[in-house]
């Protein structure tokens, strides 16, 4: 039960993080469409790092 709550919290945290990354990346692209490729790559890398963190927490909590 508790680890389900924990998993929910992790997902919320990860969701907020991913939302921030995606939103900021979109803002960046809207501001500079020619840098879209670079921003996208950076976004994916940071998203992956965040994902790793969230997964790590999920796996450790399981």
């Amino acid at each position: 039960m508790y680890n389900l709550i924990g998993a929910g919290l992790i997902v919320i945290g990860g969701g907020i993080g991913l939302g921030q990354i995606g939103g900021k990346a979109m803002e960046g692209i809207a501001r500079q469409p020619e840098a879209a490729g670079k921003i996208q790559t950076a976004m994916i890398i940071i998203g992956a790092l965040l994902e790793g963190l969230a997964f790590g927490a999920l796996i450790l909590g399981k």
Partner: peptide
């Protein structure tokens, strides 16, 4: 973004 979210939440469900 969607797939990152789905993959995270799927694991949470599968716990």
């Amino acid at each position: 973004l969607v797939l990152m979210m789905t993959s995270i939440s799927a694991l949470a469900n599968g716990g």
